[in-house]
């Protein structure tokens, strides 16, 4: 097995969602916490892409932020190149090797900065280059690499379209010469033809620079296109984790199957199907046992009582009593 770049071991993250202190004391309410990420483990090998997919509120964006150290885990540990993440982030030489690409191309670039300063910021922050000319040359190189012109550096973000802004965002992420990139829904705000451009660019860059990606998305087709390994998340937990091809060819967890069934697809012209009912419950007050049981066609008493552990099926880890017991109906 190749070298592990990022390694998450039983990571959890809680958020305090209590009312303000005074209000809580007056109305005698207890503190309330929301478990956004619950006991999540995964590892990403160098030069590969691990995708996390799930609906809103499943905790995938929280994992993204945990992975670059924007949040600290409430439990468990994240290691970057074998070192605890907090220790790794304390060293500029290691911190430089991870960076992030964001979802909203309109909010991820400071509107008051010129593009050349946006792209150069990590270079300056880490002191990778100091001479003015060298920085200008490097910024031009980075902009060319993402399909823009060096002269674009003089402009402000509002002069660019959404897709071009996302290219700028990628150039900024690359400017610290990272090896590991966390991509939080990088194309979900873009039109499909632009999405194709950005996805192709990200794959090209990965091959050329040997990048490792943690790719977060709600779009299964995009995830299928991008990932080597895939984790499906539901209410803070990874319910199925394995090589992308295996998960897509034989989805095992009922939720993965539901998702794959639910997606409107070009190949579905004229076909009809029976959609699965129910909606994602609130993570503040999750269901008992397996959190998916209220929507699951295979649920029984054990599912309502007992949280399922991950069991191995081929190359795939699945957290489901029904799959473990071989129940199918």
């Amino acid at each position: 097995m190749s070298e592990i770049v990022l390694d998450a071991v039983e990571v959890s993250r809680d958020f305090d969602v209590s009312k303000p202190w005074l209000q809580r004391v007056v109305s005698r309410e207890p503190k309330r916490t929301l478990r956004a990420v619950d006991n999540v483990s995964f590892a990403i090998s160098r030069g590969t892409t691990l995708s996390l997919v799930g609906e809103s509120g499943c905790g995938k964006s929280t994992v993204a932020r945990l992975a670059v150290g924007l949040y600290a885990p409430s439990g468990g540990e994240i290691r970057f190149e074998g070192q605890p993440l907090s220790a790794a982030r304390a060293q500029a030489a290691l911190r430089r090797r991870m960076n992030m690409i964001f979802q909203d191309p309109y909010a991820s670039l400071n509107p008051r900065w010129r593009v050349r300063d946006i792209v150069a910021e990590p270079i300056r922050a880490f002191g990778l280059l100091t001479a003015r000319d060298a920085i200008t040359a490097r910024v031009g190189e980075l902009l060319t690499q993402v399909g823009l012109a060096p002269a674009d550096g003089e402009k402000y973000p509002h002069e660019f379209s959404g897709g071009q802004r996302q290219r700028i965002s990628i150039a900024r992420a690359l400017s610290s010469e990272p090896e590991f990139l966390v991509c939080d829904e990088p194309t979900s705000a873009l039109d499909v033809s632009v999405q194709a451009q950005i996805l192709n660019l990200m794959r090209d860059l990965q091959q050329r620079l040997g990048l490792t990606y943690l790719f977060i998305s709600h779009n299964l087709a995009v995830v299928r296109h991008m990932s080597d390994r895939l984790g499906v998340m539901y209410l803070g937990r990874i319910v199925e984790l394995g090589p992308g091809e295996d998960v897509f060819r034989t989805p095992r967890h009922p939720y993965t199957r539901l998702l794959l069934d639910a997606i409107p697809d070009l190949d579905m012209v004229g076909k009809s199907r029976t959609p699965v009912g129910g909606e994602v419950p609130s993570p503040i007050d999750p269901p008992s046992g397996c959190t998916f049981h209220p929507r699951c066609p295979l649920a029984n008493d054990r599912c309502r009582r007992e949280k399922p552990a991950h069991t191995k099926h081929g190359n795939v880890l699945v957290a489901c009593h029904a799959v473990e017991e071989g129940r199918t109906a």
Binding site: R65, L70, R89, A92, M98, Q103, A107, P122, A125
Partner: peptide, 13 residues
């Protein structure tokens, strides 16, 4: 809460 601030936090400013 905007992402450009997060981008600055990620590089450790």
């Amino acid at each position: 809460g905007r992402e450009y601030v997060m981008a600055a936090q990620v590089i450790g400013l």
